[in-house]
């Protein structure tokens, strides 16, 4: 009987618990998801720097290729952003 009461009591906090955990999850998703694209884009930019220093006449092409690659690798970060949005606004 006491166990049942405890479970019922816990159930009352359930929606708030879920909401809090969803917000926590959104923060973790965004924080961890931003690591990968950040490192990746940094590597791309540093390699583009090296390439431009070695061959300044190809700077224009290197810049456009770098921006394209960065925009593509940014997608994984955007996926985690979408997951964070889903957790924030879709989970109630």
């Amino acid at each position: 009987m006491k166990l049942l009461m405890t479970i019922l009591e816990a159930a009352q906090f359930n929606s708030e618990f879920i909401r809090g955990m969803a917000c926590l999850g959104a923060g973790i998703a965004m924080g961890l998801g931003a690591i990968g694209p950040g490192i990746g884009e940094g590597i791309a930019a540093s390699k583009a720097c090296e390439g431009t220093a070695r061959q300044p006449e190809a700077a224009k092409q290197i810049r456009s290729i770098m921006l394209l690659g960065q925009a593509v690798s940014e997608t994984t970060g955007l996926y985690s952003l979408l997951i964070a949005f889903l957790l924030m606004f879709a989970v109630r």
């Binding site: 925009a71 940014e74 997608t75 955007l78 996926y79 952003l81 979408l82 949005f85």
Partner: peptide
């Protein structure tokens, strides 16, 4: 999926 979500995520953010 990746094309649509990439555009959507960028503009929405």
């Amino acid at each position: 999926i990746s094309l649509g979500l990439r555009l959507f995520g960028n503009i929405l953010s």
